[in-house]
Design a protein around this nucleic acid. Structure first.
Lengths: 133, 133
DNA sequence: CGGCATCCAATGTGATACTG
DNA sequence: CAGTATCACATTGGATGCCG
């Protein structure tokens, strides 16, 4: 039986090692969280100040209602964004970066700047790679 | 017929708008690319210098062989990493950051530092959020 | 207007087995 | 050692309809 357990055991160990690393390495969780397609985009969009839900939906072309709401919820939960609801008809909801969110903003901005500066180099590298044998 | 087309039309327009934004906004593509769970981890792991494939697999606990290879391939294609194969028995393959990759490294490192510094604040925000009614 | 719930298709990811 | 190939499954994400 020992041999038949080996695979499962290794899997278990690997998973535990991963979980342990997750717990021991907080940056991993945060890194995973902001390594989200829409998070960075949203952070950039909110950099200009408070925005209405519909404004965000318009500014971030291609985002579905579901993803926009979902992403905003996680950002709110993580304390990076505050949601302000104004009771009126129709309802008005604004989203705004918190201090915590503002702290992350320059980092995302830096990545954005880097991306714009090095986009051509990456594009060239891709073409070189695809053209190779 | 005009009414039945509306939904499809809106979808088409949205997609075109998204594609246009992708083309017009290069940072979007790069942002999406580095907004990958394993890319940032790999960049951090490679910061110390060249690493063998098996070393990387060991250092980044929880990554599957498939994801490791796949991520390394895209990084190589994007010109952020170089792959060096040494013909021997057994074969030896090393991965190393390029100049381009090194340029991105401090940015990822900054995010990592921020994550470690603000992890507790985020954790606290989550608990506050989850405890709310 | 700003959502939420549901269903469904596409994609991502992992486990496993096999190869030079 | 450093992969590739395949299958199965989980997650993502979009479409749609309904609600306060």
């Amino acid at each position: 039986m020992a041999t038949t357990m080996t695979a499962a055991q290794r899997r278990e160990e690997a998973k535990q090692a991963y979980d342990a690393m997750l717990a021991a390495c907080p940056s991993r969780q945060v890194l995973d969280r902001i390594s989200d397609k829409w998070v960075s985009l949203l952070l950039v969009a909110l950099a200009d100040g408070p925005q209405r839900y519909s404004d965000l939906a318009r500014r971030i072309a291609g985002v579905s209602q579901k993803m926009l709401t979902q992403t905003l919820r996680t950002l709110e939960r993580d304390g990076l964004v505050v949601r302000t609801m104004t009771a009126a008809v129709p309802v008005r909801v604004d989203y705004e970066l918190t201090d915590l969110g503002h702290g992350l903003r320059p980092l995302v901005a830096a990545v954005k700047v880097w991306s714009e500066a090095n986009f051509e180099a990456i594009e060239a590298a891709r073409q070189r790679y695809d053209a190779r044998d």
